[in-house]
Computed example of a mutant assay.
Amino acid sequence: MADRHPPVLRLQKLHKTYRLGLHTVPALQGVDLTVWPGEMLALTGPSGSGKSTILNIAGLIDQADAGSVAFNGRDIQGLDGTALTLLRRDAIGFIFQSFNLVPVMTVADNVDFPLFLAGVPAAERRQRVAAQLAAVGLSDHAQHRPDALSGGQRQRVAIARALIKRPKLVIADEPTASLDSHTAEQVLDLMRECCHASGEGGGAAFLIATHDHRVVRRCDRVITLEDGRILDRATETLTS
Results as ranks from 00 to 15, higher is better:
I57L: 09
R156L: 09
N100Q: 10
G201N: 07
L87H: 05
D147M: 10
D75F: 00
A134C: 04
D173Y: 04
D212R: 12
G45A: 04
T235N: 09
A204N: 00
L190C: 11
L41C: 10
R125N: 05
L225C: 08
L86C: 02
L43H: 11
R4G: 00
T224Q: 13
H196M: 07
G81C: 01
I159V: 12
D80W: 04
R218F: 03
Q155D: 06
E124Y: 04
D112S: 11
D227W: 03
Q97N: 08
A205D: 09
H213P: 12
G38L: 08
R218S: 01
W36E: 15
N56G: 14
V8E: 03
L87C: 03
L86G: 00
K51L: 10
A204R: 01
A142T: 03
V187L: 08
P121G: 03
E124C: 00
P37E: 09
A160T: 07
L138K: 08
G137M: 08
V102C: 12
P103A: 13
S68M: 01
A122T: 14
A209M: 05
L60C: 14
G45K: 01
I54P: 00
Q12H: 11
P167K: 10
E39S: 01
R166H: 13
Y18L: 14
L79S: 11
I95R: 11
D112H: 00
T235W: 02
P103M: 06
L43C: 11
A135C: 03
